[in-house]
């Protein structure tokens, strides 16, 4: 099932299927690209950032960025 990264629940895992074009190069340096598997670990309240684990490394994404990333959740 596909959903926005920002909408993922705690501990949910999935594969990135789409990243909005303007964001693609910005997040590529952090290891986030289409086809990558990730796990959501924490979401900060009040529009705070979303923390995900990609390749065993924790990365935190602003909510506005997380809204532009689509994940196929397993």
């Amino acid at each position: 099932m596909e959903k926005e990264l920002a909408m993922m629940d705690y501990d949910e895992q999935g594969t990135i299927t789409e990243i909005e074009k303007d964001l693609r190069t910005r997040v590529a340096g952090m290891g986030i690209r289409v086809g990558k598997k990730l796990r959501m670990v924490t979401k900060q309240p009040i529009k705070g950032p979303v923390d995900v684990i990609v390749d065993g490394a924790e990365t935190s994404l602003g909510l506005d960025m997380a809204e532009k990333i689509t994940v196929d959740v397993v």
Partner: peptide, 10 residues
Amino acid sequence: ASKIERGLYL
């Protein structure tokens, strides 16, 4: 080395 992919990107 434990996060080699993103390191190689740069």
